[in-house]
Design a protein around this nucleic acid. Structure first.
Lengths: 237, 237
DNA sequence: GTATTATTAGAGTATATACTCTAGGGAGTC
DNA sequence: GACTCCCTAGAGTATATACTCTAATAATAC
């Protein structure tokens, strides 16, 4: 799965360059602020050229979304022949936030995107449901592995939804919570502080044997937003 | 605090009519899809008239935000001379979601709004911090009231943030999860299913004496989204 | 080489949108 | 009546943006 490498000007086909440049610009400036003319100008190609390769802007977005979908589905392919352990959980969390970071524009103006493209809406809905199911399965398998207490299905579903809400909206929170007007000033590391929030959610369900480890893991992602979290603390180290 | 009443054509001043109509249209169609010309047309006044009362669109939005801020601050004025009980908690949850509903357009395209108006950005940031502090104080006072287990401050802060994320993004989730393209098709009742999600978060911290009551309360807000929550269930009754 | 196809340039268009500008009406005051 | 002040109308503008169209060039097939 080659993706998210930045400079491969001469080597790539125009079509792929368009997709890549669009993703970059969308992520940096928001889809709303990036026009097809901008994309073309950024690549030093003509608008006509761009529209030769894509019928319209929605098609570009849709194709990028499909890449994202594939990536996350790949990450969230839960093995069902064995229980999950703490390393698995860490991997899932890290992976999901990596994916979120690479395609972060998608979650920014999602509602408008879905309003303007029905395909995207139905696909995204299915995608959400797959993710929710995957999260729930992760909880289940973590319980099998003795990491978390086993929970009734209904509770797992509600918890999964909470995890989903936190994961998909942590970035938006960061952007709105930052005082700086430049919303580009966010790092992957900051984004991953969302893991701290997810782990906060899980704390009460962690089995005593793993409590200490989970708390240590969680501490690694501790946010350092001075205003609300009390004392700022060094992160990751 | 009079607000969100619909028809008061002859009685109101043009300025207030503009604010009210803007709020309505923004909520129904999204700020992005409502132009100043639309607002004027909706009120059967001229664009010039609108711009006589407001310098620009941002000023309209900013003023509406200030109303919202006032409303929520009013709701979240936590008494500090007594502990809180379950009724208090219900009131806070209901009130917050009511406010969210009345000004729901604000949380839809928030990032773009903040990008385009620095006043709004700083105000919103302070607002967020006030809300987080209020949520944390509610947890604290609920512990004082014996409803929740007492928690260390750091955990309360992280939990408050999770509650904030769930509350402010529940609506966006509903809109994206619904298959229908018309994002207007959402009801206050559906929105309040977010309370179910918030209560899910609190479950592990509820003191045994209140567990049953909280679970009953929670059941009243149970979502009935067929696809992912398993069996659809009748709500509120 | 020639025919065909794939790709590209770049000027151009239709539409939208936030906002301006000028002119004037209506009500109160002297 | 004239002056003033608040309010309103409505045509108009500058700019942006998604997208089109034609013609030309490169690549490929035969």
């Amino acid at each position: 799965m080659s993706s998210t490498t930045t400079n491969a000007d001469e080597l790539m086909k125009t079509r792929d360059k368009i997709l890549l440049a669009s993703l970059e610009l969308f992520n940096e400036q928001g889809e709303r602020n990036v026009t097809t003319n901008h994309i073309a100008a950024h690549l030093a190609i003509s608008p006509g050229n761009l529209y030769y390769h894509f019928r319209n802007k929605s098609d570009i977005i849709y194709e990028i979304f499909q890449e994202y979908e594939k990536l996350v589905d790949y990450y969230l392919d839960i093995p069902d022949n064995r229980p999950l352990n703490l390393d698995d959980m860490t991997f899932y969390l890290e992976s999901v936030f990596d994916g979120l970071w690479s395609y972060r524009f998608l979650h920014r103006d999602l509602e408008n995107l879905l309003d303007r493209d029905q395909r995207l809406r139905t696909d995204y809905q299915r995608f959400t449901n797959r993710c929710l199911a995957a999260i729930s399965r992760i909880f289940e398998k973590l319980a099998d592995g003795g990491v978390l207490e086993p929970q009734p299905e209904a509770l797992r579903a509600a918890m999964s939804l909470n995890v989903w809400l936190i994961v998909t909206n942590w970035m938006a929170f960061l952007k709105t919570a930052h005082a700086e007007k430049t919303s580009a000033c966010m790092t992957l590391r900051e984004l991953k502080q969302g893991i701290y929030q997810v782990l906060t959610l899980e704390i009460p369900y962690v089995m005593p044997a793993y409590r200490e480890q989970v708390m240590e893991l969680r501490e690694k992602y501790r946010p350092m937003i001075p205003e609300q979290t009390g004392e700022p603390v060094d992160v990751v180290g």
